[in-house]
């Protein structure tokens, strides 16, 4: 059977970020936790990749490694390459890499209240981007901060530029985080669960804003989430992660139409649906494996309704489903054909 070893599933010329066979482990007192075990994915300019997975699946750790903000120790990248515009970030000198961060790739954090410094005004923090990377004067940087706040639609930006983060509402703070990430018009934005800490009505607004700005500036976006609803609206492609590996990757519509991995299928079936009102909601049984003790074979096998003997012994490679799709299930054909 045809398997995928290269990360770009589609040959493309405008690949921005190419993560290849990334391994990250945490050396803790309780042993080595293998958080990321051979993840490969690629993002092109103007593309939105959604990385989906439950807590502990390694989705955040992967992007921390990409951004170079992995807590080290205990976290170590043990194998793999992270190519950003063709250059390997992992072998780049620290100084050069720092210049890439913020200017060429930026990150939006989950909880804006803790990701903004409480003792500095938002204007200062927005302006800092220009001071650090462009050597701008404080006064000019502040003018840029007002402009950015306008751009992310913060009302009365000029009056509020001197306010502190705690004086803003949750949605406004997340807008400020977005403004910070967009400040230098980077090529790639990584959003780590940008709407998880917000309430539902504000979530939609922030997501719309993010999608709109992304389109306007034509950058690549990695959207980390565990919310399938968010993904359907904004993503072009999806990578589903489980126990530190990608189990399925596909264009967004293919996945919703016919998932090629039992885990993805379980996730989709566990979304509450109006047309199934009154019936019991499906749940994937069991718990995700401990990262210090991943089951042999396919990591999903103890929870998989389709698991067989082969699944307990042989780690499935990422099989090619179509030109643009891959699934790490020995029996993906059954899974797709099921529907």
């Amino acid at each position: 059977m045809d398997t995928l070893t290269e990360s770009p599933l589609v040959p493309r010329t405008d690949t921005l970020l190419d993560v290849r066979d990334l391994h990250v482990e945490f050396r803790t007192r309780d042993g080595i936790a293998k958080a990321v075990n051979g993840v490969s994915y690629a993002v092109a300019r103007g593309e939105t990749l959604a990385v989906l997975g439950e807590s502990g699946s390694g989705k955040s750790v992967t992007v921390q490694a990409v951004m170079g903000i992995l807590d080290s120790p205990p976290g170590f990248v043990t194998r793999g390459e992270i190519l950003f515009r063709g250059e390997n970030l992992l072998t780049m000198p620290a100084d050069q890499r720092r210049k890439v961060r913020g200017a060429k790739m930026a990150m939006i954090f989950q909880d804006a209240l803790s990701a903004l410094n409480p003792v500095l005004t938002v204007g200062y923090q927005l302006g800092e981007m220009f001071v650090v990377h462009r050597g701008m004067s404080r006064r000019d940087a502040r003018a840029m901060a007002v402009e950015l706040m306008d751009r992310v639609r913060i009302p009365a930006a000029r009056q509020r530029v001197g306010d502190y983060p705690h004086q803003f509402s949750g949605g406004m703070r997340q807008r400020i985080m977005i403004a910070m990430a967009m400040a230098l018009e980077p090529d790639l934005i990584i959003a780590d669960e940008p709407t998880t800490a917000l309430d539902v009505t504000v979530q939609a607004q922030v997501m719309d804003l993010l999608a709109e700005l992304r389109q306007e500036m034509g950058m690549g976006l990695i959207l980390i989430t565990h919310d399938l609803g968010v993904v359907a609206d904004v993503a072009d492609r999806i990578a589903v992660m489980y126990a530190g590996r990608i189990v399925e990757t596909a264009p967004v519509h293919d996945i919703y139409r016919a998932p090629a991995h039992p885990y993805t299928k379980g996730l989709l079936e566990s979304i509450p649906r109006l047309d199934r009102k009154g019936k019991e909601l499906y749940a994937i049984r069991g718990l995700p494996p401990s990262l210090t003790d991943v089951p042999p074979g396919c990591a999903f096998n103890p929870r998989c309704p389709m698991a067989r003997e082969r699944c307990r012994t042989e780690v499935p490679p990422l099989y090619r489903v179509t030109a643009e799709r891959g699934s790490a299930c020995h029996y993906w054909e059954e899974c797709v054909g099921d529907d």
Binding site: D150, R151, R153, A156, H166, Q167, G171, V202, E212
Partner: peptide, 28 residues
């Protein structure tokens, strides 16, 4: 999405829906 508010015309920003509304509370 509400219209982008401009700093030159702050009165416009009052109409800003959703998250914009809550900031008045913070300001108070």
């Amino acid at each position: 999405m509400p219209e982008p508010s401009s700093a030159q015309d702050p009165a416009e920003s009052v109409g800003n829906a959703g998250a914009g509304g809550t900031m008045d509370f913070a300001a108070e």
